[in-house]
């Protein structure tokens, strides 16, 4: 599933988790810092993408500022033998941005989680109803977010965690 990265690859992760320089040749600027060629830097990104290490290379938006102001988590209680089928089906809707199976808890019976983002609440509710009838599952709840308390990109390979050295 995962492989260990070389020191150079870790350095590239540390660079690409930051903001790409807004200069005509951003990859050249990075290459010069690392004593690589521009082509080598671009090739590393391509390879990381092929390996699935980089999920996507592009822009991170602030949703609220971009006009996507309603975001809801829909939690579903799905019979365990149906979770996989329903999860796959819900994930196939372009409006669903995230879809996970998570374990049920003593006071929390939900086992499937989908995220949706719309410009208002009514649209979220309509979309949830559409999803529910598409999968014929009606044990669900919309949990709207009211405030973003933190949203950052993870900084990998910057802090030591002594408890992880086995």
């Amino acid at each position: 599933m995962s492989r260990s990265l070389t020191n150079l690859e870790k350095e590239l992760v540390r660079i690409f988790q930051e903001d790409l320089p807004l200069v005509p040749r951003p990859f050249l600027q990075i290459a010069e810092k690392l004593n690589l060629t521009e082509d080598e830097v671009i090739d590393y990104i391509r390879r990381f993408k092929e390996e699935g290490i980089i999920r996507r290379f592009g822009v991170a938006l602030r949703h609220w500022e971009a006009g996507i102001t309603a975001n809801a988590m829909i939690v579903w209680q799905i019979p365990i033998d149906k979770v996989k089928e329903v999860g796959k089906k819900l994930a196939s809707f372009p409006e669903v941005t995230h879809c996970y199976q998570r374990p049920q808890q003593p006071d929390w019976p939900y086992n499937l989680y989908t995220m949706i983002h719309r410009s208002n609440r009514e649209d979220c509710e309509k979309l949830a109803a559409k999803l529910a009838s598409a999968v014929d599952q009606h044990n669900y709840r919309l949990i709207f977010s009211t405030k973003e308390l933190k949203k950052e990109s993870m900084k990998y390979f910057v802090e030591g965690a002594p408890e992880c050295r086995k």
Binding site: M1, D19, L22, G52, I54, Y100
Partner: peptide, 24 residues
């Protein structure tokens, strides 16, 4: 970027593929 619509341009990593774990 100045208007706060773009947070950054760069890579989004699959944390699991580089040995990290996550939870909600």
């Amino acid at each position: 970027k100045k208007d706060g619509i773009i947070r950054r341009i760069g890579a989004f990593f699959n944390s699991r593929k580089i040995g990290y774990v996550s939870t909600l």
